[in-house]
Design a binder for these strands. Structure first.
Lengths: 142, 142
DNA sequence: ATTTCATATGCATAATAGCGCATATGAGTG
DNA sequence: CACTCATATGCGCTATTATGCATATGAAAT
């Protein structure tokens, strides 16, 4: 496979599009925050981030126990153009905007001390449960 | 898989990127012309065109025995944006430009009567052989 | 040093994708 | 009708990919 085709390949997966969308909107985000925003297993998120990084679209920065991911700085022009296209995709994707809302609520907790709290306590704080009550909470908050 | 992720999936293959590039530069092109430009087996080109059409990026028009493919007219904004990114990719890909050169030479033959001549006679006309003499001819023509 | 926390990864499995070959389809031609 | 031509497609094969589970790594905290 082409190096360039690999870039498109990395975009050819729903979860990875969601990740890129959040990272484009929110800047530098660490894995556990992405896990909460997307509500997917950690190994799943981690693997997808790895694919995007391999393709050259993301870079990561270690900071203590946490690893922050962000859109790579040295993208080729065509890569920038492709990612810019995600802005237009975002317009028609409500689920992307819901992701952003969850990510945004999650990122606000950074103020409260450490970046990444324990998942248990944090989820309680966020009222995000695994049983899909996240939407319920979202409604009551908006 | 997402409908949108399917679009990126359709771009995640070198041959399909080459096809899109030619179609973007040359407009409406029929399958046998693409086969000559890319110098790949017909079933291969045909399948890849099908994938791109399924993703909604291409549409086809039958005209007698020939089938013309072109970039779809009713693309979504983000799809247009993604395809526009191919212009920037084209800048750094000499092989894309060679494809265009072959396609362009091939399309000039449309004047000589039918769109699609028999492959044998046509290749003789183009001096494109399977043994890789195409470059040789290209040099002598430029 | 042991434990905890955040993240990554090896492995097995299931699903998917591309390729080459042969052949089907469908439209003109003699 | 038989034939040719342009294109599409079914099949078997191999290669790649995503997923879930368990576990490894690596850094801080106790």
């Amino acid at each position: 496979m082409d190096r360039d085709a690999e870039v498109f390949q990395s975009l050819a997966e729903p979860t990875r599009l969601r990740l890129l969308n959040i990272l484009r909107q929110a800047g530098e985000v660490c894995v556990c925050e992405l896990v909460d925003a997307l509500q997917l297993p950690q190994y799943n998120v981690s693997r997808h981030l790895h694919v995007l990084a391999q393709a050259g679209l993301l870079e990561d920065r270690r900071c203590g126990k946490w690893i922050y991911y962000r859109i790579a700085k040295d993208l080729k022009p065509y890569q920038r153009a492709v990612l810019r296209a995600l802005d237009e995709l975002r317009e028609e994707r409500e689920d992307f905007q819901q992701d952003e809302a969850r990510a945004s609520r999650r990122l606000k907790l950074r103020r409260d001390g450490a970046c990444c709290l324990g998942l248990g306590g944090l989820r309680r704080l966020l009222k995000i449960r695994e049983d899909g009550k996240a939407e319920e909470v979202q409604k009551s908050k908006s």
